[in-house]
Computed example of a mutant assay.
Amino acid sequence: MKIAFDAKRIFSSVSGLGNYSRDLVRILSEYYPENQYILISKKTSEKGSEILKRSNISHLRTSKGTLSRQFKTGTDAQNLGADIFHGLSGELPLKWNSKPIKKVVTIHDLIFERYPEYYTWIDRKIHFWKFKKAAQSADKIIAISEQTKDDIIHYLKVPESKIEVIYQGCHHAFKEEHDDEFIKAVKEKFQLPDRFILNVGTIEPRKNLLNVVKALQGTQIPLIVVGTKKPKYFQLVKKKIDQNKINAQFLTGVSMNELAVIYRLADIFIYPSFFEGFGIPVIEALFSKTVVITSNTSCLPEAGGSDSVYVDPKNHLDIQAKIKFLWENESERKRRADKGFDFVQKFNDEPIANELMNLYQKIMS
Score class of each variant (00 low, 15 high):
Lys324Trp: 02
Lys324His: 06
Lys324Gly: 01
Lys324Arg: 12
Phe325Leu: 14
Phe325Pro: 00
Phe325Tyr: 06
Phe325Ile: 02
Leu326Lys: 10
Leu326Gln: 09
Leu326Ile: 09
Leu326Glu: 12
Trp327Tyr: 14
Trp327Asp: 13
Trp327Ile: 10
Trp327Leu: 11
Trp327Val: 13
Asn329Ala: 04
Glu330His: 08
Glu330Val: 06
Glu330Arg: 07
Ser331Ala: 07
Ser331Val: 03
Ser331Gly: 00
Glu332Asn: 00
Glu332Leu: 09
Arg333Leu: 02
Arg333His: 03
Arg333Phe: 01
Lys334Phe: 02
Arg335Val: 02
Arg335Asp: 04
Arg336Gln: 01
Arg336Asn: 00
Arg336Ala: 00
Ala337Tyr: 02
Ala337Glu: 03
Lys339Asn: 08
Lys339Ala: 13
Lys339Ile: 02
Gly340Pro: 08
Gly340Tyr: 04
Gly340Ser: 08
Gly340Val: 03
Phe341Ser: 09
Phe341Trp: 12
Phe341His: 14
Asp342His: 08
Phe343Arg: 02
Val344Asp: 09
Val344Pro: 08
Val344Arg: 04
Gln345Ala: 14
Gln345Met: 13
Lys346Val: 07
Lys346Arg: 15
Lys346Asp: 01
Phe347Cys: 07
Asn348Met: 05
Asn348Lys: 06
Asn348Pro: 01
Asp349Val: 01
Glu350Cys: 02
Glu350Ile: 05
Glu350His: 12
Glu350Tyr: 09
Pro351Glu: 06
Pro351Gly: 05
Pro351His: 05
Pro351Cys: 08
Ile352His: 04
Ala353Tyr: 10
Ala353Gln: 10
Ala353Thr: 09
Asn354Met: 14
Asn354His: 13
Asn354Gln: 15
Asn354Ala: 13
Glu355Cys: 07
Glu355Lys: 15
Glu355Gly: 07
Glu355Ile: 08
Glu355Asp: 15
Glu355Val: 04
Leu356Ile: 15
Leu356Gln: 12
Leu356Phe: 15
Met357Val: 11
Met357Asn: 15
Asn358Val: 10
Asn358Ser: 15
Asn358Asp: 15
Asn358Gln: 15
